[in-house]
Nucleic acid binder design. Structure first.
Length: 580
RNA sequence: GCGCCCGUAGCUCAGUUGGAUAGAGCCCCAGCCUUCUAAGCUGGUUGUCGCAGGUUCGAUUCCUGCCGGGCGCACCA
């Protein structure tokens, strides 16, 4: 539907140019907006205004020219007006709007998908938490955002790979091993000094206990290095397992788990740095090895190998991103905690250092989550080991609500997560509000089936009986869905879907309340429908009579609303229940 | 000090490449279930879009300065 209008305007522009009425040689992309007020029609375009300055004539003149060149005006529009200062306000033919319904039905799951990704390959990396402990709430938000962005890009026609980068090398892992080893010794009755910056969570003791279960006290007699290594391996395996389990519970999936250690062990770091050296982007100073990142806009150069000869974290990250680039992705997306934002210029420098454009990498920042209970912030301190894990959060409020809440705000703004609200089963809870809309529609079809009310295909239904403004409100909203998905994917902003779904659900609930889809059950037994119509004053609710034709058409409409809600929730990774 | 992000209704936030009279939810108040799911609906109140300039036919949106908040400025990860 929208495509038809856009095409029509676009060819009008072309025609006008051919006739010499417009002189610009670059025609702008035609976009359609939803006007705020009904008297402005049901679609609006601002092309004329955006062309006005380059044409050096008034927006109204340009609008008039465009309008003159629209073929088939009578077929497409009931009315087109030029409004001040140059809006094209269009009232589209009813038949065109109605066409949206069979389209959704036919496209089904694919409705809303686009192909602007054109099969380009994108790698989305997210979560990537160190396997040194359970996932916390912040990781959860990153997981929800990363997954939703992946889904969006897939819907936009990209070929998506979801990857988890396992930081299984370096100091943190050593500390982890040392922490477990210390606890292990304590469990075995030998006093041990705990590493200063070690991991103090209770799960460390659990792991230590498992080590002892497996090997008894034999590690006490092994050299400390070996013993620590053993503890580290055990901890790694267990904690990564926990992370995987939590993610599975949360409904987050990855196609690929990439190990940092595998880079180092395969000599990848040296090799990759050698490439930089050849490009004269590495230099030695003060006994350390530096990456000339300032050549690409970073504020200063960065150390990749310390004086002591150890590689920095950046070195692995260079190797990792080099690897991702080498794997041939057209776009890399990194989902990071917002506290790493200072790292962005560095990584952009890396991408450019290897000869790729800066925008080959897009970093999505995810801000902190404040858990709120009863209007008060739940204090968390990582130092004291007092933080709510992702697992606890999911156990308390459920995976669906958790994801939805994480995706309700732009990811780069702080999020206040109201635990009580997320659990509440009421209209105040946006998750249930949207899911309930879906469940209500499912229920309609169950009832229809029970009563033997036919549910024909849209193409076999006379949709022309849909004339009520509320019906068109829904249809218009449905028709906007693909452009919402498109914009959301292009901006890497899943929250737009969340907002859209709340609006659509709102329209559905209002519609459901105000209108009848099927005749009341009582009519079947006692077909004196009058009693439902007589005292229409008592309530505005559902007093209208419906003919079988209207029932069929409205069921069709409901079917498509349900479809779009399901597709939208699917993008967010939230389930669309049939019963609640 | 330098850099990045943010500042929109009492609260939490949207605001679609710069568009028309800036929206939603929460909170508060008053109503609505004999019917297809009340996990729902209807109505009511709310704004110097942080401040001051600039660009523009038009600015919440772009630019500059200032104020306020957050984060980052490691040979940590």
């Amino acid at each position: 539907m929208r495509e038809k209008i856009i095409d029509a305007l676009q060819s009008a522009l072309k025609q006008a140019r051919q006739k010499g009425q417009l002189r610009t040689d670059s025609l702008p992309a035609v976009t359609l907006d939803l006007p705020k007020r009904p008297e402005w029609g049901d679609l609006a375009s601002t092309v004329a205004m955006s062309l006005a300055s380059s044409e050096q004539r008034s927006p109204q003149d340009v609008a008039r020219i465009i309008l003159e060149n629209v073929d088939q005006r009578e077929v497409l529009f009931d009315r087109v007006e030029i409004a001040h200062p140059g809006f094209l306000n269009m009232t589209v033919k009813r038949a065109l709007w109605l066409e949206v319904l069979p389209q959704i039905e036919e496209q089904g799951e694919a409705y809303g998908r686009a192909d602007f990704g054109k099969g380009r390959r994108v790698l989305v990396e997210y979560v990537s938490a160190n396997p040194t402990g359970p996932l916390h709430v912040g990781h959860g938000r990153g997981a929800a955002v990363g997954q939703a962005i992946s889904n969006l890009l897939a819907a936009a026609g990209y070929d998506v790979l979801k990857e988890y980068y396992i930081n299984d090398a370096g100091r943190q892992m050593k500390l982890l091993g040392a922490s477990v080893y210390a606890r292990y010794q304590e469990l075995c009755g030998r006093p041990a000094s705990f590493p200063e910056e070690g991991y103090r969570g209770a799960y460390i003791e659990t792991v230590a206990g498992h080590v002892r279960d497996r090997v008894g006290t034999t590690l006490l007699d092994s050299p400390a290095d070996q013993a620590e290594q053993r503890c580290r391996d055990q901890a790694y395996e267990e904690l990564l397992g926990l992370i995987r389990q939590d993610l599975r519970l949360f409904g987050i999936e990855f196609d690929s788990w990439f190990s940092e250690a595998s880079l180092a062990s395969s000599g990848g770091v040296e090799q990759v740095l050698e490439e930089l050296r050849k490009r004269d982007l590495l230099f030695e100073q003060d006994g350390a090895l530096w990456f000339r990142s300032s050549a690409f806009g970073d504020e200063k150069d960065r150390v990749v190998r310390k004086q002591e000869g150890e590689y920095t974290y950046l070195a692995s990250d260079i190797a990792y991103h080099r690897d991702k680039l080498r794997r041939g992705y057209d776009l890399l997306i990194d989902v990071w905690g917002a506290d790493h934002h200072g790292y962005i210029p560095r990584m952009e420098a890396v991408v450019q250092a290897y000869g790729y454009p800066k925008d080959r990498l897009r970093v999505v920042l995810v801000q902190m989550v404040n858990l709120m209970r009863g209007g008060r912030k739940v204090e968390m301190s990582k130092r004291a080991g007092e933080f709510i894990t992702m697992r606890e959060l999911i156990d308390e409020v459920g995976a669906d609500a958790t994801k939805f809440f994480f995706l309700m705000r732009r990811s780069d703004t702080h999020l206040d997560f109201d635990l009580e609200l997320a659990k509440q089963q009421s209209a105040e809870n946006p998750v249930y509000y949207v899911q309930y809309a879906h469940a209500r529609i499912s229920s309609l079809f169950r009832v229809a089936e029970e009563r033997g009310i036919p549910v024909p295909k849209p193409r076999e239904t006379d949709l022309d009986v849909l004339t009520h403004p509320d019906e068109f409100g829904l249809i218009r909203k449905l028709s906007a869905y693909p452009s919402v998905v498109h914009a959301s994917a292009a901006a890497l902003e899943p929250h737009r879907i969340t907002f859209y779904l709340q609006e659509l659900a709102g329209l559905l609930h209002t519609f459901y309340f105000k209108h009848r889809i099927m005749p009341p059950a009582a009519d079947l037994e006692a077909p004196d429908a009058e009693r439902f119509v007589k005292d229409a004053d008592a309530s505005t609710r559902q007093r209208e009579q419906v003919t079988p034709g209207l029932t069929a058409a409205r069921l069709t409409l409901m079917r498509q609303v349900q479809r779009v809600i399901r597709n939208g929730l699917g993008l967010l990774g939230v389930s669309a229940p049939d019963r609640m």
